[in-house]
Write a protein that binds this DNA or RNA. Sequence first.
RNA 1: UCCUCCUUAGCUCAGUUGGUUAGAGCAUCUGACUGUUAAUCAGAGGGUCGCUAGUUCAAGUCUAGCAGGGGGAGCCA
Length: 465
Amino acid sequence: MEHTRRNRIVDLLKSKSYGSEVLVKGWVRTKRGNKNINFIALNDGSVVHHIQVVVEVAAYPEDLLKLITTGSCIAVKGILVESVGQEQHVEIQAREIEVYGTADAESYPLQKKGHSLEFLREIAHLRPRTNTFGAVLRIRHAMAFAIHQYFNDQGFYYLHAPIITGSDAEGAGAMFRVSTLDDKNPPLLPGGHVDYSQDFFGKETKLTVSGQLEAELGAMALSLVYTFGPTFRAENSNTPRHLAEFWMIEPEMAFYDIHDDMDLAEDFLKYLIRYALGHCLDDLEFLNKMYDNELISRLKQVVDEKFERLTYTEAVEILKASGQTWEYPVDWGTDLQAEHERYLVEKHFGRPVILTGYPKDIKAFYMKMNEDGKTVRAMDVLFPKIGEIIGGSQREENLEALMKRIHEMNIPEKDVWWYLDTRKFGTAPHAGFGLGFERLILFVTGMANIRDVIPFPRTPKNAEF
RNA sequence: UCCUCCUUAGCUCAGUUGGUUAGAGCAUCUGACUGUUAAUCAGAGGGUCGCUAGUUCAAGUCUAGCAGGGGGAGCCA
């Protein structure tokens, strides 16, 4: 086949250039027909829909057509024509067919019938070829792009926080060690502990659990920054909402207080969901039909409604007055459980909720204390079905107040001297938040398990592919 | 990590109070069919019942351990 530019199927399905010659390349989903005519459903990943290729059997060698099975990869040159069938507007009358790669029908695991998501996780190397994962991966891309678009439009700068870190200052969870020492015979200190001064970085290093502290350093110079990168937590979490390797977006804004922080979080989430509705409707309609009939209406509702804002203290009062029986009792000073958050979002308010003013003892050291001396300027955005999708706060910018919290919480000063320097030199009020990227994708796609919204999930006991 | 459920053909699942050769749909293969829409119709092949022990005359079925997976919870994003 001569070298010609490939037409994307997404473009051809919208085209009205009947009679023109086109070239498509993609993977066969089904082939059906009789001894005179064959129909091939071809997909190239550019859109959830397939294009129908019509083949006059007599015009091709039998051996060639035999190779075209579900999963095989082919190139087709032909004429774009108006379809006489009911299910599609256009189709391609094949003139020339080349088989790039066969797929043995006996052993190719994907069939034209649907598969369970659990089975597809076991063949994650092939699942991008399904309608479901095509849709999820296109939406995931669109959301990543929209995040950069939003922040760029708002005057933020993309700051690349390090992935390898020498400090565990945020205490966000167990960490993975990064080392080049000989694992069979590491250098030891007299006490028997491993001597990390001989390791690659001259100290013990880990994979990051958060880019926030580095983002704060950036905000103290560029005013508005955000990070967007992989994050690693070595927690033994086995739930449909946790990954050991996930992606997180962490904006950090100088001169923002907690209210500015909430305004940004709400506007940001609504922008992203609006973007999905505007750019990914084909994929959303597919997911709405196959997995979650309320997906699109729920997305539209979130875009249209104002998020409910209230304090932790008010939330505790509502929960206590609810008359519900809880597995975990509601008591001022303890963290809210999943059942409490779900009640507020799904039953009491029926819309996204932003909670603020949490007790200081259940939140991180860097959060700014309120005047009451008991609560901090934290904010959590709670979404239906997902729970906490965003966690953020106004940061403590006063050096003495921050030092007091660091001592109270036994954080080694030598690990965070650089962080403290920002409060020593030209400190400024500032705030920020973290958005779990996969949790956003869960909400936007309506998928139920976080392992199905990332190409190759890493979870306890699973690092295949 | 805790609680709970599950593991039978390539996939999704039946399988009765323990009892001969373990079934179905789809997929695959063969054939039929002049435009199909997850095509249809006919036929065929396909199983170490997750693994290991145990109870029993007899285990897919009962018991225990292990492995893998789902759901809920905790940790969190």
